[in-house]
Design a protein around this nucleic acid. Structure first.
Lengths: 207, 207
DNA sequence: CCTTTTATGAACACATCGTACATTAAAGTG
DNA sequence: CACTTTAATGTACGATGTGTTCATAAAAGG
């Protein structure tokens, strides 16, 4: 009862015109919920992400949201992962120092950018109060990224650029943690951080 | 109209029995608000800290709260600072490595403890969404503590235990940042962190 | 075609937000 | 001491958000 067209094998709906009761395909609902949540998160921050507004924005009913997600934060985290690009590989040019500087610079650029960085900061903030968000963030975002960095360091150990006894997790904690420390705790501009020196320190430390 | 006694020169009120309208001494109101907020924060976390509940718990009216504080988070931050011990000095035994390990160990013990650490974690989380909390946390807690650590490192530079060209802020970011990284981002147990090695790395890095 | 699954609108009691109002008492001033 | 200013008071309000219940309707899948 709502307009549906088939274009190149892809179903294209016009859900915003839809009236009346009834069930819609789960995938469509899900996608609209995540889109609406991403929009709310981007425009109004986490304070705008509530069950009520997501329901209004997405057209989904509150009942549906409560059935599938435990908290607004959980939807926000999922919406963020769905709308951001999949994780890049950790580049390996053979030059460990340069690769680490490149990755850290990209990270700092991302979180320093007012528009792109704010959802990240706010989601991390929400994670400190909502365990569901914490679990999602750690499992989907933070731990996989640490693993990528760790693997790059392991490769460097095999090629002899890095000592075999180096504590790789600790190195990652030091480098990324230094950035997060300024971003979340001190709230000082990240542009003053000397990334090249940060990498130099961490590599020299581990031998 | 409410019972007031003087004991040893100190005014002792019985505000919980107080009925009727009228103004109470500002200091008393303030102190009760902060006490009530600290209680709420400790028992129910930041989710329990609302203007409404603080008003009910403290006996102060909502109007008063709105007049003096911009957000529940701001009251929570102030209540936390008021109820926690004033900042300790950074010890200087002459042994830089040992002093850093001692401070970091105390810090890790504090934030790892479920009871004492949760308010800290949740306040840092709130700071990512509420700028007033961020400002209070950075100014009252984080920046002064970094300054203490920095001064200890400066002393070490004068005694020659640390190279003159070492980037002290970066060292602090590395050491404390590594802890925060595990606490806030990765959400992995801090007890697995080798603090001795962390300090060794950071000192070796800076020369 | 028929059954199961799942989304739907409507409604509810409740908490919280943020603000407004007239009232009243403490603190400061003469 | 009386008088003025300042600031906290109870009450009330509309708006928003929470979390749940209910009967109903439509898609999915055999």
């Amino acid at each position: 009862m709502y307009d549906v067209f088939i274009k190149g094998g892809v179903l294209v709906g016009a859900p915003e015109q839809r009236k009346g009761r009834g069930r819609r395909p789960s995938a469509e609902v899900r996608s609209e919920v995540l889109n609406a949540t991403a929009r709310l998160l981007l425009n109004g921050g986490m304070r705008a992400v509530t069950f009520e507004r997501i329901a209004k924005e997405s057209g989904a009913s509150k009942t549906t949201l409560y059935r599938w997600w435990p908290s607004p934060g959980a939807i926000a985290a999922e919406a963020y992962f769905a709308s951001s690009e999949p994780m890049l590989e950790f580049p390996d040019t053979g030059d460990l120092h340069a690769d680490l500087v490149a990755q850290l610079t990209a990270f700092v650029d991302l979180v320093s950018d007012e528009k792109r960085g704010r959802p990240i900061t706010e989601l991390i903030g929400t994670a400190q109060i909502d365990p569901k968000v914490a679990e999602a963030w750690s499992r989907t975002y933070a731990l996989p990224r640490r693993e990528l960095a760790r693997q790059r360091l392991q490769t460097a150990q095999r090629t002899g650029q890095l000592g075999a006894e180096a504590d790789l997790d600790l190195m990652v904690d030091q480098m990324w943690g230094a950035c997060y420390h300024r971003l979340l705790i001190l709230k000082v501009p990240l542009k003053d951080l000397n990334i090249d020196r940060l990498v130099t320190y961490s590599l020299r430390a581990a031998g």
